[in-house]
Amino acid sequence: MAVLEIEGVSTFYGEFQALYDVSLKVEEHALTGIVGANGAGKSTILRTICGLAPARSGSILHNGVPLERLSTFEIARRGIALVPEGRRLFPAMTVLDNLLLGAFSKPERESREKRLGEVLKFFPILKKRKAQLAGTLSGGEQQMLAIGRALMGKPDIVMLDEPSLGLSPKMVSHIYRILDEIRELGITILLVEQNVEWCLKKADRAYILENGSVVLEGPGKELLSEEGVRKAYLGL
């Protein structure tokens, strides 16, 4: 079943059109990937879903409920968490405060301590760094904190915007292992990546974006073996 259905969405930044009639489906418990070159509109799709860059036309359904008219904070409270590009933490706050802010809404505040324990078990390194300012963490740790903050809100969909950006290959594979574990918790993942090979290997279903339009879609491994994709994105 599709938990998120995007149908014919066009998004503009002022006069500039960033997305042209984009349609995609995110299946429950699956990992859906969006790949494409710089400026293809990958991040814009995520920003459109969570209302930071509202769509001018088209529809976005979350479990059948339209999201287009909701504001960002309402969408977040429906269980759609964004881990933004460049990690976007609150650098002047401690690791602990960053995590606690992730469990924002009233019902969540009650189970917050329990949730915090679970997330810290997930990311032992964050437990060690609890009292440290978020801005002083290494790149990989910041990425883990950003994911941890998203998990604090007990989301059913986590959207990640280029989690591998600026990280060492070792850290990237660590982050990707974490994504596998998140899936095992039954959380649906929508992943935007520039690392095409890597994303297609993982994705149950993937979309390739060019100049704001979806040009190809299919199971990740199938796309990976396609001649055109290998030429254009992998240089093979």
Partner: peptide
């Protein structure tokens, strides 16, 4: 104060974790 600090640090991030900025 914590919510306001989050908004001050990064309003988009604050909104995307559910804070009504």
């Amino acid at each position: 104060g914590l919510y306001l600090a989050a908004i001050r640090d990064n309003e988009d991030a604050a909104r995307s974790i559910g804070i009504s900025a």
